[in-house]
Design a protein around this nucleic acid. Structure first.
Lengths: 198, 198
DNA sequence: CCTACCGATCGGTAGG
DNA sequence: CCTACCGATCGGTAGG
């Protein structure tokens, strides 16, 4: 019973689940990636489903930790900068981590047996980001730099922005994607914040 | 060789592929839904893959037809109304058609063997909508109702808007979704169009 | 940790 | 359009 193999199984499963989905990933493939035989997986997990749950638990912990860490770096008198930092962190993780890919896959098209569990985790994670956004909104409101937009509209439009960005990241090469990111961020800013002379 | 069964197979496949995905739908299930036995499917299609291609061809044809039809209803002197009509058509189809659900699924997580084909269709469909958007942009520019936003930024931000909406339609119930839709549309409008006094 | 194996299900075929 | 069947692969088990 080698604990490093247990970690290896989770690591391989994270990659394969994110690339191909849960149903389309076989235990044989996972075992192959780890360098063991399929039945040896059962030394560490009782069912394929248990691997999925373990991977998702790890994922949610690392994501929330990351965003909580960002929160501590924020300065109360710079809401515009804070919002951009949140946007950048989201985009960066989107483009570089397997975790973000798996997260979007399973929140979007959950394997049937995990639907409820995933939904719970989704709202848990959304609450973490929503709280950060609320803080930024209050700071921006106090500084009187916002247009006529309430807190819910502020939050909803941010989520829609990053959700749209996420989807588009699948389709365009990095150059086109960055152009899109800049264009979209510009319009979002024009919509949220007052202009110079206003 | 009953042609109505061929249509029935495509109809059942559209529903099942959209609900469960391509890999997770068996030919047995499709046959069951049509009321025939699995091998009889092979009277109409040589492979499971051919059913998928036929369903996707039908889908793209009906989508582009729908948007071309909208285009003809637009009035050159009402760019704001036209943009809203485009947004509404998009949202309506998203919430009511199996086609939109399947489209969402396969553009987001294409079955590996169809990846290229789906990408081609994605850009084909995007071009149809981009042309409509360009027309609206030119009309709005001529009417001098736009902020400092160029054609590419106008197009990119609209796509990001509907892509975000597209994704969020999955997470929320209809009531929350409609609230989000309104909030997001409001911020987008504030970003794109000049305010009253400007 | 392995080899050898299980029943169930998959896409697809033979033959009528 | 059907019944009967194919080899391959799935998640999982027995036994060492």
């Amino acid at each position: 019973m080698n604990q490093s193999n247990k970690i290896g199984i989770k690591k391989a499963a994270l990659r394969l689940f994110s690339e191909k989905g849960y149903e389309d990933t076989s235990l044989h493939e996972i075992a192959l990636a780890v360098g063991i035989k399929k039945p040896s997986i059962y030394n560490h997990f009782d069912h394929k489903e248990d691997i999925f749950c373990a991977v998702l638990d790890d994922l949610l912990l690392s994501e929330t930790t990351e965003y909580q860490h960002l929160r501590k770096q924020m300065k109360i008198d710079e809401p515009k900068t804070n919002l951009r930092m949140l946007f950048d962190l989201y985009c960066k993780r989107l483009m570089t981590t397997e975790e973000a890919l798996l997260w979007k896959r399973v929140t979007f098209f959950p394997p049937q047996q995990f639907k409820e569990m995933i939904e719970e985790k989704f709202f848990e994670f959304e609450n973490v980001v929503t709280e950060i956004l609320s803080g930024i909104y209050n700071d921006a409101r106090a500084a009187d730099i916002l247009r006529d937009v309430d807190g819910d509209e502020f939050t909803a439009s941010f989520f829609c922005l990053v959700d749209g960005i996420f989807l588009e990241h699948h389709y365009y090469n990095e150059q086109v994607f960055r152009q899109r990111m800049d264009a979209v961020w510009k319009v979002y800013n024009l919509g949220i914040f007052k202009g110079e002379g206003e």
